[in-house]
Design a protein around this nucleic acid. Structure first.
Lengths: 121, 121
DNA sequence: AGCACAAATGAAAATGATTTTCATTTTCGT
DNA sequence: ACGAAAATGAAAATCATTTTCATTTGTGCT
């Protein structure tokens, strides 16, 4: 865990939700921190790899990040405003495992997201 | 509905699932069609606006497209050799719909892939 | 402290998907 | 056939993200 990662985590804590890399960088600079955009990207990538940060994509393709718990979960994402809800995925886990076994696949992982338009939008 | 849009729709029909703009362009060229990448993007954008085509983002930020209303299926992808198998997804559909309803989301779509290592590898 | 080597940093360049510009071509109505 | 409007695509622009690389910082060792 290096300096950049600590700075990025602390700003993510302050934000308390999703933010893009560029927003986080701006927030850090305005908060008086000295850090380059490159380091923000590097720290975010590393934190995503370590499953400390969740990454997903807005409809325009920009990545947004937030702190997350380690539990494997899935998201329900609003296509319009980007707000997200964590959802329960045991049915999905079972399905993925069943499909993989049926075809003799080992070391199974999966990726799933559900999109829709939230009640507010 | 112009020529480009018709070409793009026909190749999407052949593909029968998700594909990126660049993949669709390549497929059109290999199929002997003459069309520029610009027109593929323009046609896709226009079809998305008209709700004829669905657009999603992969985790790497690239956009992928498919015909709306197309009975879509999911893939079981081998992490090692890349071979894919189509899998049955009704359990997943139900799960996605249930999760969305539980949170009051409308116009629901989803994206799911299962990864593993196939019997040959 | 002094030295050597690894890790971290960030500015600038590169990348890659997508969009915009703009000059040319095609289509369509009269 | 004529002119306006729409369509087309090559090249340039854009923008988030990644890579490169020279420099700085941290760490362990003597």
């Amino acid at each position: 865990m290096n300096k950049s990662e600590i700075k990025v985590i602390s700003v993510l804590e302050r934000v308390g939700g999703f933010a893009s890399a560029q927003q986080l960088h701006q927030l850090l600079l305005r908060g008086g921190e000295s850090i380059g955009l490159t380091s923000v990207y590097r720290a975010l990538q590393s934190l995503v790899d370590d499953k400390i940060v969740d990454q997903l994509r807005k409809d325009d393709g920009e990545a947004i990040y937030r702190l997350c718990g380690e539990a494997h979960h899935h998201h329900l994402v609003c296509k319009s405003c980007g707000s997200t809800v964590e959802i329960e995925g045991s049915a999905l886990e079972k399905w993925a495992k069943a499909m993989a076994e049926e075809h003799g696949y080992r070391e199974v992982g999966h990726l799933a997201e559900v999109f829709g338009i939230c009640p507010k939008c």
